[in-house]
Every structure is written in structure tokens, then in C-alpha cells.
Design a protein around this nucleic acid. Structure first.
Lengths: 230, 230
DNA sequence: AAAAAAAACTGATCTATATCAATTTTATTA
DNA sequence: TAATAAAATTGATATAGATCAGTTTTTTTT
């Protein structure tokens, strides 16, 4: 398809999305032959709300934020790591994207036509059920996000965000955030100033240890409590 | 499966969910043989957040509200009409429900084991892709909901709700709401008092005509504008 | 390394919306 | 049909959090 040298290869790719484990070597070869591998720099937009949803994107290396825009406001719905896929939510439904995604660091993104993915879904039922599973996992996250964003006050929302980053995204109590303060605000649906203020408050109250983008959880218990009481 | 007389029959059911159109007569027979048909009264809960997600529910007659709860607050995520299914989001992912549903009027609900649905998905790829389409349609609605709830102020949120009810739920400019004022507040994420006040304001400003639960749109244009500016 | 731009931070002020407290209307039950 | 309970409504008050207007720090560019 394209002749540029590619860094990765679908068959041996160590960062494969879970559902691709259900594909045979031949099927993976089909994907490999029909994908593009694109290097994006930090901050660059990899897909744009309102644009066509012709491709499924795979973050092979790096990370991204997925967000929706309305007027000049932005809401970050989720953080995506290597292994995550973008665009499954358009499959068999509509071909216009309802969100944008931008890289949080220099990243390698694979792009595969939705046609190829649709074909594989039709031909491999294990792949199909795995796609359903992936879609439903995303939806499950949405439920938590929507509760956090609509039912909790700033402290609860920020506690949710910190717990999400440490537990689900980085899987460590001590992390190096890839998000700016504004990003954190866009993730928690508050003003940048509020995010900064409460982050500082958490630091002063010894709930977290925060130095620039280095964040360490000191008290899980208090964060969980804040998340709970909202 | 059960011997009580049933009002409906899957093969001839006029209120079939879209994806069931993809099933053969034999497959529909399998569903019909394995379903329960339950009559619920207005206000009764048909499934509960935190409970097991063993069944897919189909609203054969009536309507329901689907909501999430946190502490004592409630957020209505969507209104469900006859033909809508509940529970697809648990398929192949988890067996605990993340939301509750309650009837808005006396309703007939069919209950089918997720096992039957899973089997059909595995055996009928058209059904499977139709399920994916349905799931993604729901997700698409979520995007709109989350933008409305997090990025817009009260007037914009209420305009969104009115447009949603008239355009997507009832498909008419003149409707009879099944929701209480509190329900409208829970749908738009505001206090009951605010919902009442702004509804009245819309009425006084001749944007809508509201008499109890009878609602009629007078100015689409203003509602769309309010929705847009948020 | 200096200059410029962007991001992070801080304090003061403002406002959208919740909460509270009561009253009226509607629906339900005795 | 009266009595009771629930829902709807209204006005007054309180407040969480946004906005504004800077200053400081960090990052990027020259």
C-alpha cells in the first residue's frame, strides 16, 4: 500500500489492541498490508470532530486525548494509550466523527480502513464479539465519567480524575502526567484556575504530592472518600 | 418456558427492535420460546443499577426512563420507547448493570436471557453487526448528552431536552410529556426548581406552549439557537 | 543566552444556579 | 367527597465555581 519503511508489523506488534488477538496470521497480514503508519508530534491532531470516519486508528506508540468540542469549550472524554483504538464507535452506524483526538506526546499511529475492519468483523465472529466487548468497555467508562461530571463537585471530580489516571491509565501511584493544567481542567469540566487551586489544595492537605507534572498519591483513602461524597 | 398467556409473539411482534429484523423465523422462534413477558405499572423499576445483567429487556409496549444514581442524586440518561432494548451494553463485557430503568407508564416488557442473544450474535453475523450499530447509535446519543450536560447552561440544556423529546422521542411538535418536573430536572441535570422556572420562562417568552404536561413548540428557531449558544 | 510566548499560578469579584422555606395545585386514598 | 399526600410553583437567600486581571514561572524561539 505504501512503500515507506514501517517501524511495526501487525503480526509481531507488541502493542496490539486486545481484539486483534482474535485474528489469524492471515487476517493480521491483511491488516498489515492495508495500514498506514504515521508519526505524529506532540499536540498534533490525529482526527477531527465533524470529519469523515473512514479509518480506525491504533496508537502503536505514545498517547492521545480524545475530546469533544462545543463552541470554544473542550471536554476531554478519555486518555488513550498505546493499544487503544479510535473510531470503533462509528462502525456500522455513521461515517462522521463525533470527537477529535490529539497526541499528548510524539506518537506512532496506525490507520486502517473501516472497510477492512468491517470485513474482518463479518468473517471472524470471535473478532466481532471482541469488538462488542471493547465498545461496551468504553460505554462503561462513559457511565462513570457522566456521573463524575454531572453529579460531583470540583473536589470529587478531581479526585476521580487522579484515581482514573493512576489506577486505569498508568497503573501506578506515582506518575508523570502528560496533561497540562488546562487539560486536567478540560477532563474534569472545570476552569483551569479551579483545577490549579484544588490540585494545590490536595497537595497542601497531603492528599497528593505534586511537583509540576509529577504526581504521587499520598492518601488513597481520602481520594476515594472525596470521589464517593462527590 | 412459562405457560401464562402472552400478549405478544416475536414473529409477528409489531414493536420489534430493529436488530431483530435480521433474525430468521427459526431464530425468532427461539427468542419467543425463551422470553418472559412482564407487565409493569407506572413507576415500577424494571432493572436496577448494581444488579445482575442476565437479561436483555425489550419494551414491547409503554416507555421507561434509564438513569444512573449516585448518592441520592439521579441522572436520567435516556428515555426508552417501545422497540428499545435495555442491557445490550453488558454483552460480552460485564454482568453487572451500571444503570437502572423505571417505567413511565404501564408497560409490557419482554425479558430474554443474554445467553440467547449471545448465541444469536455468534450464529448470525447480520444480527451481530446490527447489534454493533445499535450500540454505536446509543454511544452517539451519549456524546450529545455529555456535551449538553457539561458545556451548556440551564437554558441550553432545557432547549436540548425539549428538542430531543419532540424530534427524537415523540417525533411531533406537540407532545404529552410522560415526565414529571423532577424527571425533567433529572434529565437536564438541574434542580427541580430551576427546571420549573425556565420552563415557565420559555412559556412566557412564547418559545413553547406549556400546560401541565402538554408541551408544544412555538419557536424551533429560538430553541435551536439556545441549544447552540448553550 | 536573550527575547518572546505559553503555561502556571494567585487574589478579587461576580454570577449562575442550588438551596431553603413556604404556598398552591393536583392526585391519591379513605 | 373529604382528607391526605405528592407534585408543582414561587420568592428569598446562599454559594460553588467562573471570570477577570494580573504576576510569576516555564518553555520555546531567535
Amino acid at each position: 500500500m505504501n512503500n515507506r519503511k514501517k517501524k511495526y508489523n501487525c503480526i509481531s506488534c507488541p502493542k496490539k489492541a486486545n481484539c486483534f488477538d482474535k485474528l489469524s496470521k492471515e487476517e493480521l497480514k491483511l491488516v498489515d498490508d492495508n495500514r498506514l503508519e504515521i508519526k505524529y508530534n506532540k499536540g498534533e491532531i490525529i482526527c477531527k470532530q465533524g470529519g469523515f470516519a473512514y479509518n480506525i486508528l491504533h496508537i502503536t506508540e505514545g498517547s492521545a486525548k480524545l475530546y469533544v468540542e462545543h463552541n470554544d469549550k473542550k471536554l476531554i472524554l478519555s486518555l488513550l494509550n498505546h493499544t487503544d483504538l479510535i473510531g470503533l464507535h462509528s462502525l456500522f452506524y455513521n461515517n462522521v466523527l463525533e470527537y477529535s483526538a490529539a497526541c499528548l506526546e510524539n506518537s506512532y499511529i496506525c490507520s486502517i480502513s473501516t472497510n477492512i475492519i468491517s470485513t474482518l468483523i463479518r468473517e471472524n465472529i470471535e473478532f466481532a464479539t471482541s469488538i462488542i466487548s471493547t465498545l461496551n468497555k468504553d460505554t462503561s467508562r462513559f457511565y462513570n465519567r457522566i456521573i463524575s461530571l454531572t453529579q460531583k463537585q470540583l473536589h470529587g471530580r478531581l479526585a476521580d480524575a487522579i484515581l482514573h489516571f493512576t489506577k486505569e491509565i498508568y497503573n501506578s501511584d506515582e506518575i508523570e502526567l502528560k496533561l497540562s493544567r488546562k487539560d486536567i481542567a478540560d477532563f474534569t469540566g472545570m476552569s483551569t484556575e479551579s483545577a490549579i487551586r484544588i490540585l494545590k489544595e490536595f497537595h497542601n492537605d497531603k492528599i497528593i504530592d505534586l511537583d509540576g507534572k509529577k504526581l504521587k498519591i499520598i492518601s488513597h483513602q481520602i481520594l476515594e472518600k472525596l470521589s464517593e461524597i462527590g
